[in-house]
Amino acid sequence: MTTRREVLQGLIVSVGGASLLSACGGTANITPSTRNELRFYSPEEFAFIDRISDLIIPSTETPGASDVNVAGYVDALMSEWANTSTQRRFRMELAEMRRLLGEDFLGLTVDEASQRLAEFDAAAFDRRPPRYGGYRSLKQLITQAYFASEAGALQEQGWVAVPGRWDPCVEV
């Protein structure tokens, strides 16, 4: 049995190893778009995705979605991964989402926007089958892009490149 302390100690060592690895590994294979050089979304669409991504995954003790440019990653995904029908669908669903969340959404305070999005999110998941598929797809991309970032993987999730051993039952 391994204690949580030992697990964390293991993490610290391995995280160091992973950082070293990334330092040697050169540049990332995906280049997230920047606000000024968008490849797919309009500046308004980008601002909306940036907003909801940071409401879904805010900055806490670790960086949030905006800090690691998740919206830029999603823009790159749309431009490099998605085919034209996926692009069309995401754009259409995004327009619908913006309509449902209100024209004033970007102008709201963080607390107001957070409350409105929370209600929308709850409605998206509270039925079988769930609705607002476009929002749920985008939320998944946002989440996956966040945890694929260096900060998301290492700092938030404690991802370990080389665990080195198997412990089938750890106290947490």
Partner: peptide, 11 residues
Amino acid sequence: DQLPPWQQKNL
């Protein structure tokens, strides 16, 4: 196998 998540392209 040594590519960490943040060096993988398009998730």
